[in-house]
């Protein structure tokens, strides 16, 4: 009996070897179905003696399990194979992938740069204001210690508005006065924004450009802190240690005043096209808030000291990205906008 069972099993396993998916179902019916060959033997078991029943019974069960496992394995083998073949046939040409550009948006390179710079200042504890663009003579000049008929006004040709005394701010410094009028020290703020100069537009001049103004006022603010803050700012902006130098200069609203040069980051100070061979690039103006400015906003200049700085955003943008014509920045050609 046992031999017969084994023969049957071997026969079924043999059939399985060459079976397709559909054949497996047939094999299942042939051996394990209601009238299957193995089922038939099982049916006959009841007529046997207990000892025999036990022996043959376990033999049949083993055969049954073996067959089921073999069938499952075969099934799996076949479906795997089919899937592999299917996937193989579905292979696509991945080199076609970037031919569909899901449209990508871009911030303007100027805003992007302002954002980058602002983030550094925010991390140093600065607040960000934006100020107003229509100003009076008082905020743009007089309160900043630039009286009427002062030659310092020459360097900033001003747009005036018709039928009023108002003008378009020539420097974000105008916002300093508003901020100090509105609050008492401590003050630690930057003002990114547009400024206006009444001059013809060419590759390096524009009637509108962007500045970032900084103002810090408290009881013990020093020139040393100004130096430290700007050094840290430049280092973070260029993500490296950049050598900077402070040169004495003059601005009406700061005293002492300085201009800051940084070692050319493109040639590491060796001299190149960008730094015009000098190894240095002028990047910003700064100084300690002039007592007359404090006077204008009714601050006690004995008690408080402060520093201020201003930098031109376009200058950095042009340097950083190698843009040689400022007008490109305001033309808004999508081919340019999408580059940054």
């Amino acid at each position: 009996m046992n031999n017969k069972i084994n023969e049957m099993l071997n026969e079924a396993l043999k059939k399985l070897q060459t079976a397709e998916l559909i054949d497996i179902e047939n094999i299942k019916v042939e051996y394990l179905g209601k009238k299957g060959k193995i089922t038939e033997i099982l049916k006959k078991l009841s007529s046997l003696a207990i000892e025999e029943k036990k022996e043959i019974g376990s033999c049949i069960n083993m055969a049954k399990i073996q067959l089921i496992q073999a069938m499952e394995a075969k099934k799996k083998e076949i479906t795997n194979k089919l899937l592999e073949e299917k996937m193989k046939s579905e292979k696509i040409d991945i080199s076609q992938s970037f031919a569909f550009n899901f449209p990508k948006g871009h911030y303007h390179v100027i805003s992007k740069t302002i954002e980058e710079m602002s983030d550094i200042f925010i991390s140093l504890g600065f607040d960000v204001s934006c100020g107003q663009e229509i100003e009076t003579e008082w905020y743009n000049f007089e309160a900043l210690n630039i009286p009427k008929d002062h030659p310092a006004r020459d360097t900033q040709d001003t747009f005036y508005l018709e039928n009023s005394q108002n003008l378009l701010r020539t420097q974000t410094s105008a916002a300093q006065i508003h901020i100090m009028e509105e609050q008492k020290p401590p003050i630690k703020v930057i003002v990114p924004g547009r400024v206006y100069r009444n001059e013809a537009t060419d590759s390096s001049h524009s009637a509108i450009f962007h500045q970032i103004e900084g103002l810090v006022v408290d009881e013990d603010i020093t020139f040393a802190q100004l130096k430290g803050t700007l050094q840290l700012f430049i280092n973070r902006l260029f993500n490296q240690e950049v050598t900077i130098r402070f040169r004495p200069s003059h601005f009406q609203f700061t005293e002492p005043s300085a201009e800051v040069d940084m070692e050319c980051v493109f040639c590491r100070g060796k001299g190149c096209r960008i730094c015009k061979g000098s190894g240095w690039i002028e990047v910003l103006g700064c100084g300690m808030v002039h007592p007359n400015v404090f006077k204008a906003v009714k601050y006690d200049s004995e008690k408080y000291t402060g520093y201020a700085f201003g930098l031109g955003v376009e200058r950095f943008v042009m340097l950083k990205y190698g843009i040689d014509d400022m007008r490109v920045l305001y033309e808004n050609d999508l081919r340019v906008l999408r580059q940054f």
């Binding site: 140093l124 607040d127 960000v128 204001s129 003050i187 630690k188 810090v216 130096k227 430290g228 040169r247």
Partner: peptide
């Protein structure tokens, strides 16, 4: 000489609320 002025940092001069 400005170069002889040391550098320092004024961390936390304002712990004001962000006004803007």
């Amino acid at each position: 000489g400005y170069e002889k002025i040391p550098t320092s940092i004024d961390f936390g001069a304002t712990l004001l609320e962000q006004k803007y």
